Simulated scan of single mutants.
Amino acid sequence: MNPGGAAAVREPEPRGPGLTVVPPGPVPAAAPQTAPLRFAALGDSLTEGVGDPVPGGWRGWAALLAGALSEDAAGVDFHNLARSGALSHDLTAAQLPAALALRPRLAAVVVGGNDTLRSGFDIRHTARELDTALGALAGEGTQLLTACLPDPGLLLRLPGPLARPLARRMRAVNTVVHALSLRHRTVHLHLTELPWTADRDLLSVDRLHPSATGHHLIARGFHARLAEAGHRLGPAPAAAPAAAGPGRAADLWWMATRGTSWVAERSTDLLPGLVALAVTEARGRLRGATARLDEQMAGAASAALAGLP
């Protein structure tokens, strides 16, 4: 890949089409810059740039944003530490130490989607790992970027018995992310509100990651939120890439050449857990207990937040 490329929570007020912002902390007085602005991106395949291919690897929203943080491209020192498949534990075990060593002025921390896709999902664990990472970086004076995530079951168009429990998990993760964004005064982007399913051009051929157009939209969203927070930036990223997004033929080609192996790899861990989730969901529906399952997961998210130090 290309890592060096250039408790209830009150919902924030909507700002613009499909995007909202959590008010960050006070912007410190600008100091004379004697070194480039260092920007570190932590997370999984979304932040690594999967879905936005360039020669030699991936680009992605974080690299696009990095190129727009300063009037002078040489004024930004960008480090993409995100890795495909990363869980919240990987964030604190591997990426956080590397980020702290860089002492970045700006850091993006976007993770949690892969946690929902694992059979051992535990919202308490996810909350602890995210709080640890955000707290450590905020403690160094780093301005943080966070985002809540769209529902993977919805993106993949999974059948209801599978989609509903995944949606329930994703809501729990987003509840935690919303609360921690307020706690650590991050600049927050609500990716859940973008029209992922209504606008097919925003998704890559695997239907789980943004397309190049989707990555551009995310980069512009973060750029706008940073500008609203008072940060001095360069011009906003382009609204869309020069090349058109993938069409139906590209979808079919990806599924024939890579999609099958991708599903097989995911199934090693996911399939047993998803089958168990589907069985539990079906039983719950027969007993009319779907609402109770929703309440249990919401309660688990609240308890996870209440249990943080």
Rank of each mutant, 00 (worst) to 15 (best):
R292G: 07
G259K: 00
A243D: 15
G259Y: 02
G139K: 10
R169H: 06
T192Y: 02
T197R: 11
P32F: 11
L154N: 08
L202H: 00
R103W: 01
R105S: 09
G221D: 00
L154D: 15
T186L: 01
P237H: 08
A229L: 04
A147M: 10
T20N: 13
M297W: 11
T268K: 14
A86C: 09
L154V: 15
R183C: 07
R283H: 13
R15A: 11
G57I: 07
A86Q: 04
G60N: 06
H125A: 09
A29M: 08
E193V: 02
F39L: 07
A229I: 03
A238V: 04
G230S: 10
A282S: 10
S211R: 04
V187S: 00
R266I: 03
A236F: 13
I123M: 06
G160N: 14
Q95H: 12
A6F: 12
A138M: 12
V187A: 03
L274R: 03
A98I: 03
G299R: 09
G247K: 05
V27Y: 04
R128N: 02
G299Y: 07
D269S: 09
D115S: 05
V279W: 02
G273T: 06
V21H: 12
A30T: 12
L100T: 07
E71G: 15
R157C: 13
W262M: 12
R220E: 03
L106H: 01
R59M: 08
D206F: 01
G51C: 07
P272D: 07
G160A: 13
E228R: 15
P159F: 10
R185V: 09
D206Y: 03
L64S: 02
G284M: 10
R169S: 00
T197H: 06
R183S: 09
T192P: 01
E265L: 15
G141Y: 07
P104Q: 05
A133Q: 01
G5C: 06
R169T: 01
G214F: 02
A291N: 05
T92R: 06
R59A: 13
G113N: 07
T47I: 06
R185K: 12
A31S: 15
G299T: 02
A63R: 07
R105W: 08
P150K: 00
S267N: 06
M255C: 14
L277F: 08
T92I: 14
L252A: 12
A29V: 13
P3D: 03
L158I: 07
P26G: 13
N2M: 11
D72P: 15
A167P: 05
R232K: 15
E71S: 12
G60F: 03
A243H: 12
G5L: 02
A62C: 07
T260L: 12
